[in-house]
Design a protein around this nucleic acid. Sequence first.
DNA 1: TTCCGGTATTGAAATAATTACAAAGTTGTA
DNA 2: TACAACTTTGTAATTATTTCAATACCGGAA
Lengths: 138, 138
Amino acid sequence: MKIKKVDYDQILKILEEKGIPPSFQRIKILEYLILNRTHPSVDEIFRDLAPEILTLSKTTVYNTLKLFAEKGIVKVLGIEKDFARYDIDISPHSHFKCIKCERIFDLKISDDKDLKIEDGFEKIYSENYIYGICKNCK
Amino acid sequence: MKIKKVDYDQILKILEEKGIPPSFQRIKILEYLILNRTHPSVDEIFRDLAPEILTLSKTTVYNTLKLFAEKGIVKVLGIEKDFARYDIDISPHSHFKCIKCERIFDLKISDDKDLKIEDGFEKIYSENYIYGICKNCK
DNA sequence: TTCCGGTATTGAAATAATTACAAAGTTGTA
DNA sequence: TACAACTTTGTAATTATTTCAATACCGGAA
């Protein structure tokens, strides 16, 4: 069985490219996002990292994710009504939430560009959320 | 100058069709939604109706909109990060938020059906939000 | 190494939207 | 008029997120 490992050089490179000074917490949170592609929430990230980083504060998780979002490392998902989820995959794609198991799935978007917008409106970014039942829950 | 008026029979009919017993507050809130197609928030509805309905409680606005949403009279929009907006137009369409003037515009969706979903996922409903600059703000 | 200034982290308190809940008001009916 | 069911109301609770000030950390200059 293979233990997933993350190349720290890769993480440091991502941070450096975006002009973010690395810190232990930032590296760990970024590593978590790369390893856990489940669109985790602040609570989930905090819950999973806290045992490993005993002094970790939830504020740090908030601060770090806000910084990552500003620098374009993560995308904030508004797919939940009450809280934010974060996606390390910033390539254009849609999200599917199963209303039974509550999991979030990535969907290849058929073609983002062919969604025409009326003239005069200038699109900067968009979000597309689909809700339903996933394969496993049917 | 023409004063917009709402046909109360129409409002009563909508409520009756959905099995919602009419009340003064429900009628007024539904009238507000029909007259103000700006995708208002709870706060906006409360602020505008409170002078007219002196005893109105914000809880009533919440209760009523939740009831309307459950019965399919309104759609809840997750286009804002912090609060819900409500749309009396339940026909399939997208929404555009101008990041300058903050207004929400309705967009005709090019074709909802041609957004193909991977096999095995059963779509129940979806939401599509587009953010950018509107005609007036350019 | 030691000091210093800037930055990062932390935890507590503040904020704000929404919900829970119980009391009071309203309505229709017998 | 009396009653039961439902609606409205206001307050308190809940919860995600932000603010903020104190502390901790880190890298460079002396």
